[in-house]
Design a protein around this nucleic acid. Structure first.
Length: 677
DNA sequence: GCAAGGTC
């Protein structure tokens, strides 16, 4: 008898791709009643493990099961919110997922093998266990050893998929359990704190009665970043500094030289050094060098990068960018938009993808140029989620069939991809150093020789500077002008969306798919407000000379106070230098309520601060411990709940004080701030 | 009315 194998992927696109590879196009496609996205692919396949099989390949759409408190706890006033720490949690299939789960049941009934093809990450392992739960309920034999397996795959390239089909492995229950703990903790802690905060504070807030004051393990650290920057701006103390400016005019060109010491915070010292320069009268050219330089093309596009670029270049918030990318993906124009991978797989035929783009669009000729010899393999970044390639166009679409907003995101994706397949920009950089007294000064100039990728990627700026006059090494001249100039350090700017995303990314707050949602959530909750950043006034500590090339300028805003440098950024990208041209990008300012919440929890004196990103990191460590068998999921849930109970109790005390002291009528968010402090 | 994580 032929073995029946039921394969289930995490999403329809994977089911389709895998079915295509395994079936050799001998496939029957059936619709699934009640869900327009899910399809069943029926074909034959000779598995190394089970021989010739009848295969049904289908998919779920993310998690199949939902979790919520038992019905008696659902109403907000049904119980004390702290009861949710131990309330019964029901697991069920939500209405919208019933058709998919029914399909699994029907297909699993006579299957001998359940073959899970979810993404190879923790969530995927958990989704796999949900699929197994549904299938084994109908068909208990699938619980027997070796009857439920999963595929290990890291991309959907043909040879790789066939290799994965050859080597099924067991589902990793430890990983699935780790996620189960995460789900339970987020639900219990989020719901209990949210109900408690809302029911205690709501009536004191102006505006709508229905305002929710929520706590979430991702919302709060996100808000925390905004508040922290806010205070860094507010508490900033400008510090005076002094610098020496040297200008020399040669061949009719005015050249400004930068002091090697940049600036000093001690006026006396600066004046003494300046006087020594004047005493020397002449300056001597110590170095003239001209070297080739290049500006690297961008890395393949990840979700986080797409969101940051959306804010910077398209003036769209990250949430909107993701919505549009999702639409473009579903219409089949771009690849899967949720990816951490910034490396293209070797097996991918990138030239074929470039070829599709010669059909039209303003990038048509550039794409043709790549095919005519301009092509260069993309750079490899450091990240690979082993599930999805970088975001790239998969088909040509006439821009006129897209909405205006779709067009802009699509154009960015296409241009980014073509830039990746192009060559670095090349230039020539000249550096001139002089010794004036015993002080060093320098200037530099740039000539762009080959624009290459820049021609298709207008989001990067790299332009030739003014020509430098000829200086000879050893040449001595009397500078046209030398003066001492004072200035003050200026505060960093409020947090921008690209910066916030970088911080979340670096601290593991949210995932590529959810970061934008957390940001949208804290706006919706009125914890923060956004406004377009106006053009920053030119800072006086900014050494912008006319012949300075814009290549790798000093970090944008917020150069610190000399010793205590700058802001706490931990991102890979932490304040990309390209921020230079981003007037109009949104900046985040916390509301009084947002500040009150963070301050309130920060000042509680616990070793765990709900506002800081450590908690999420700790959660990550605990999940790892479960995965490696060092802890059980029960232990982790129990000890974490105990920690939060302590914080909850303390919160409760303060909220009680707050309620007692103020009558609802004349209280304001400021009162909350004062009292929780 | 609540979280965060998948996904359409």
């Amino acid at each position: 008898m032929v073995t029946k194998v039921l394969c289930v992927a995490e999403k329809p696109s994977i089911a389709k791709a895998v079915a295509n590879h395994l079936s050799g196009n001998q496939v029957i496609i059936r619709n699934v009643t009640g869900n327009v996205y899910t399809k069943n692919y029926e074909f034959h396949y000779n598995f190394a493990t089970w021989g010739n099989c009848d295969v049904v390949m289908t998919s779920v759409a993310g998690h199949l099961l939902s979790h919520d408190f038992a019905t008696q706890y659902r109403s907000w006033r049904s119980c004390d919110p702290s009861a949710l720490f131990e309330a019964t949690i029901d697991t069920f299939v939500e209405e919208g997922k019933k058709a998919i789960s029914k399909n699994i049941e029907v297909q699993a009934r006579y299957a001998q093998i359940l073959y899970i093809w979810t993404d190879c990450d923790r969530e995927g392992e958990n989704i796999g266990s949900e699929i197994r739960d549904v299938a084994t309920k109908i068909n208990r034999r699938l619980r027997d050893p070796g009857k439920t397996v999963r595929a290990r795959f890291s991309n959907i390239e043909r040879a790789h998929i066939i290799e994965a089909a050859r080597n099924p492995v067991p589902l990793d229950d430890a990983q699935a359990n780790a996620v189960a703990s995460r789900i339970e903790l987020d639900l219990r802690i989020g719901a209990s704190f949210t109900r408690n905060l809302t029911l205690s504070i709501q009536h004191m807030l102006q505006g709508e009665e229905k305002r929710v004051v929520s706590y979430g393990s991702c919302q709060f650290p996100t808000l925390g970043f905004v508040v922290e920057r806010y205070f860094r701006v507010r508490n900033f103390l400008p510090e005076p500094f002094w610098t020496i400016k040297v200008m020399h005019e040669q061949e009719g060109i005015k050249v400004n030289f930068r002091w090697a010491r940049n600036h000093l915070f001690d006026r006396m010292v600066a004046v003494i050094l300046f006087e020594r320069c004047l005493e020397a009268k002449t300056a001597k050219v110590t170095k003239v060098s001209t070297k080739p330089t290049s500006k690297w093309k961008p890395l393949p596009l990840t979700t986080v990068e797409l969101q940051k670029c959306g804010s910077r270049f398209l003036r769209m918030d990250s949430h909107r960018v993701m919505q549009l990318a999702e639409q473009l993906y579903q219409k089949g124009w771009i690849s899967y938009p949720r990816t951490e991978t910034d490396q293209f797989d070797r097996g991918m035929d990138l030239r074929a993808l470039v070829h599709k783009q010669i059909q039209g669009g303003p990038w048509r000729q550039f794409a043709q140029g790549l095919l005519n010899g301009g092509f260069s393999a993309p750079r490899n970044g450091r990240n690979n989620d082993k599930a999805h390639p970088p975001i790239h166009p998969v088909n040509f679409v006439d821009p006129s069939v897209l909405t205006h907003e779709e067009q802009r995101v699509h154009e960015f994706v296409v241009r980014r991809f073509l830039a990746c397949c192009s060559q670095d920009a090349r230039g020539s950089k000249t550096e001139i150093s002089i010794l004036y007294g015993i002080e060093m000064f320098s200037t530099s100039g740039l000539v762009v020789l080959e624009r290459n990728y820049l021609d298709v990627y207008p989001y990067d700026k790299w332009t030739s500077s003014q020509d430098l006059p000829n200086f000879r090494e050893g040449e001595v001249f009397e500078p046209t002008e030398a003066r001492i100039q004072d200035g003050r350090t200026s505060p960093p700017g409020y947090l921008t969306e690209p910066e916030l995303i970088s911080l979340m990314d670096a601290n593991g707050i949210g995932t590529d798919a959810t970061m934008a949602e957390h940001i949208a959530k804290i706006k919706e909750r009125a914890y923060v407000e956004t406004r377009p950043r106006g053009r920053q006034p030119r800072r006086d500590d900014e050494d912008v000379s006319e012949n300075e090339q814009p290549f790798e300028p000093e970090p944008a805003r917020g150069r610190g106070r000399g010793r205590a440098t700058g802001r706490g950024r931990g991102g890979r990208d932490g304040g990309n230098a390209r921020d230079g041209g981003n007037s109009g990008v949104q900046e985040f300012i916390p509301t009084t309520l947002g500040v009150a919440l963070i301050e309130g929890y920060e000042n509680m004196g616990f070793e765990i601060s709900l506002a800081k990103p450590f908690l999420r990191k700790e959660m990550e460590l605990k999940m790892k411990a479960i995965c490696e068998g060092r802890k059980t999921s029960r232990e982790v849930v129990q000890e974490t709940i105990d920690q939060y109970r302590a914080v909850y109790a303390r919160t409760q005390q303060r909220l009680d004080v707050l309620r007692a002291v103020r009558s609802p009528r004349n209280a304001s968010s400021w009162d909350i701030l004062l009292i929780v402090k």
